[in-house]
Design a protein around this nucleic acid. Sequence first.
DNA 1: TTGTATGCGTTATCAA
DNA 2: TTGATAACGCATACAA
Lengths: 348, 348
Amino acid sequence: MAFVGNLTMTNYKNKSNRRVTLADVANAAGVSMMTVSRVVNNKPGISEETHKRIMNLVKELGYRPNQIARSLATDRTKTIGLVVPDNTNPFFAQIAYGIEDEAYDRDYTIVLINTKEDPKRELRALDTLWQKDVDGLILCSSRLGKKELEEQIRNFSSVVLLNRDLDKNLDNTTTININDKLGAELAINHLLNDGRERIAHIRGPENSTSANRRMEGYQRALNEANISFNPELTISCFPDINGGRRAATILLQRNPEIDGIYAYNDLVAVGAVQICQEYGKHVPEDIAVVGVDDSPIATLIRPKLTTLHIDLKQTGKLAMQILLKRVEENASPENILLDPELYLRESA
Amino acid sequence: MAFVGNLTMTNYKNKSNRRVTLADVANAAGVSMMTVSRVVNNKPGISEETHKRIMNLVKELGYRPNQIARSLATDRTKTIGLVVPDNTNPFFAQIAYGIEDEAYDRDYTIVLINTKEDPKRELRALDTLWQKDVDGLILCSSRLGKKELEEQIRNFSSVVLLNRDLDKNLDNTTTININDKLGAELAINHLLNDGRERIAHIRGPENSTSANRRMEGYQRALNEANISFNPELTISCFPDINGGRRAATILLQRNPEIDGIYAYNDLVAVGAVQICQEYGKHVPEDIAVVGVDDSPIATLIRPKLTTLHIDLKQTGKLAMQILLKRVEENASPENILLDPELYLRESA
DNA sequence: TTGTATGCGTTATCAA
DNA sequence: TTGATAACGCATACAA
């Protein structure tokens, strides 16, 4: 917690309109800066009496430590970099929320940067965070190439990679991934059990790892059901509603007899549902649609979306906990796989 | 922009595994640190030749400036504090996106903190940001009391207050508000013109300024139409879907003959629509519902939500532009009022 | 065009 | 239990 000073104190500046510094307190108390520093940081070896006296002065003068100076001296910024493609996407918004929540509890702070799915932006984001000397990095859905990603990761002392994996473990990084293959199998098997025979897959961005894993799961599930894979039934798209709309349009024009769609995420699924309906198809009677993420909209649209659920706020908290364990205790690397659950609602 | 060094360079540490510093480059070049500093910062007064030579060394050694040290020396952190109630709320997510986008372009970085509508948390957030010495603060929908808010604001050199106003102008702060009264009048007048006669208002949190302004607009519009205000037709709520659901339930039980609802925001409106439908009422035939914010869900639910629109990403950009104008040019205070537009869709 | 001295606010280290 | 000094990495002011 390390709460120092009175939050509602306003006379935090001395007469010359500067910030109150350790030196000011030390002068006022007639002691050295180190004594004040020790008191403020609750270090041992200070007499009861001076501790009290100095804490009173700290409050009276409105002293609060300058985190910048502290960072320079300690090489710790109490700051974590969070890089996401788009904070507006409920998926990342939920994760960010969990991360920030845990950070708050542990007295850390989050620097948020959007990459907009642009590798150049991502690179610059990482460079910026490196220059800011963040204590750790949480990188979500990186769109960087393998080699580039590894090079970047080496620049940070502790990293959590969310929604992306590595060929070989790096000893400063933990990966957290959703078990996309399992998820895909859950979805496809449900559709198959429901009697669907021509199941398409709108597979998100080409360069997305999670998209690739979902694709694998899709193929594997079909394979296990002895259904031959038809490339015409898959299409990539930008992972938002419009992407889903465009992809579904093409899909439906190419293959009007499709009776099931497994979408990259809920946004894409919503776009697909919209197009189906606009084409006069009933969901789920004519076409069943399964999403991924269980984002807020899943229960808002009608029919309610059947989708794969992960507790994202909790996942964010977990990511932060793991990162801080690494930052503060130098824990060893691990790779975490989160199993999604199929939430059956109305669309499939 | 100030892009220094090669982004893909990995040997950023020298043999002793330290960060490469100005001193390292200066040593390697056989010049003083200042010369290197000038080159890196593109300051004038450096010969063509040394500039080139040093830039080469900078790249070769993988030098990148330490922003912390720079901040301590210049008293500028290139960091802006962003305080919101909940980054997961699309309203704030959109604003944050715009803010981050503009920040990225101007080479600033965003520290994001959620308050969860908790004034204590908000206070601590501001304290943290103060200690981090941010160059500016964007505070959204503050839930602090007037006096407390003013005290806090004084701690920062530049502030943009979003969705909250001040009694008297402070010379370091700009307020940006949505013209809620106008919005409310737009909504209510539309409902009245549509022949609605018993229009209720679900008015959001008690301590929210925007909620109060919308309430005023609601009353004024009714007043102008010579309809007497009935307190039974208004109710406050937590500003999310469940809040809307709970409020609508109470409202409908108290006054089953309600034929129009003006909701605090789209989430609340969605909750209200759900409850109406669950009570067997048709929207908009039996009850018309108008939301506020034009959040993504507005076009996702059926019926599509009629709602008041503001370009929130643009608003975020604007907030950042104004803040930076203040930070960099010490511009004078202003108060901005954004006029919403009523987007007519299906729910009213 | 380049260099020297000094300071930013804090903590680490060693000494008293 | 406390203090003096140096160091963190950089930029400002002034000098050459």
